[in-house]
Each structure stands twice: as structure tokens, then as C-alpha cells.
């Protein structure tokens, strides 16, 4: 299972970004490999459609679960058509949000 989170800095100890499409980084975690990697968000400064590009990015990495504090209209419009499940992030760091998700402690948004 692949879990994705928008983060402020890189690495599993990064804090969660307030925004999804305009996040600095995405942390992608693979539960089978028990390993994660951070990616710079190349579309952060797009004038239009950063959310669209983020949705595209998440699809490219075969994301199953997205953990985010909020999600924009356009990213949501696209992701609702996919099998990606969206959960609400808390103010903890990425690693703790992943653990909380795995322990069923996060609220499902969509």
C-alpha cells in the first residue's frame, strides 16, 4: 500500500503542509517495503492547476491513501474518480500521521 502526504520539508520527520497542491514536498511511503521517499513539488508555483498536477503525480506513484489536512476543489474532483482514499492529517509529523493511519486513528475525508 502506498501512502502519500504533503509536507513542509523532506523526510519522514517533516511537518505536514497546510496545503496539498502548494506543498513544498510530498512524502510517499510504501508499507510493503517499509520505506518512504520525499519528492520536491515541481508544480508548487504554477499559476493555475497545481492541484491538478498533484493529482496526476499521486496517480503516477500509484497512491492508495492520501493523508492531507485539506484538499482543493480541482484535485478532489479528479481524485474522487480514482480509488485513492483521502484521510485527514493531524498536526503531527509525517511518520506519526502514517502510524496513526495504520492504527485506524485518522478520520476518512472522502
Amino acid at each position: 500500500m502506498i501512502i502519500a502526504l504533503p509536507t513542509k520539508t523532506s523526510g519522514e520527520k517533516a511537518f505536514i503542509s497546510e496545503n496539498l497542491g502548494r506543498a513544498n514536498y510530498f512524502y510517499i511511503y510504501d508499507t510493503d517495503k517499509v520505506d518512504g521517499k520525499s519528492f520536491i513539488n515541481n508544480f508548487q508555483n504554477e499559476a493555475h492547476g497545481a492541484g491538478v498536477k498533484t493529482a496526476e503525480f499521486l496517480m503516477k506513484y500509484s497512491t492508495d491513501i492520501l493523508i492531507t489536512p485539506r484538499i482543493g476543489e480541482k484535485a478532489l474532483e479528479i481524485l474522487l474518480e480514482t480509488d485513492i482514499k483521502i484521510y485527514k492529517a493531524t498536526e503531527k509529523i509525517a511518520r506519526e500521521n502514517i502510524n496513526d493511519f495504520l492504527n485506524d486513528k485518522l478520520e476518512e475525508l472522502y
Binding site: 508544480f43 504554477e46 499559476a47 493555475h48 492547476g49 497545481a50 491538478v52 498536477k53 493529482a55 496526476e56 496517480m59 480541482k74 474532483e77 479528479i78 474518480e81 480514482t82
Partner: peptide, 15 residues
């Protein structure tokens, strides 16, 4: 430039 097109789920979709 406006990211209005996305290739996803086997279709190019317009926003």
C-alpha cells in the same frame, strides 16, 4: 499552461 488537461485513468480529461 493552465493545467486544464490531465491524462488519467486512460483518458485525457478536461477541467
Amino acid at each position: 499552461r493552465y493545467n486544464a488537461l490531465i491524462d488519467f485513468l486512460g483518458k485525457v480529461k478536461l477541467l
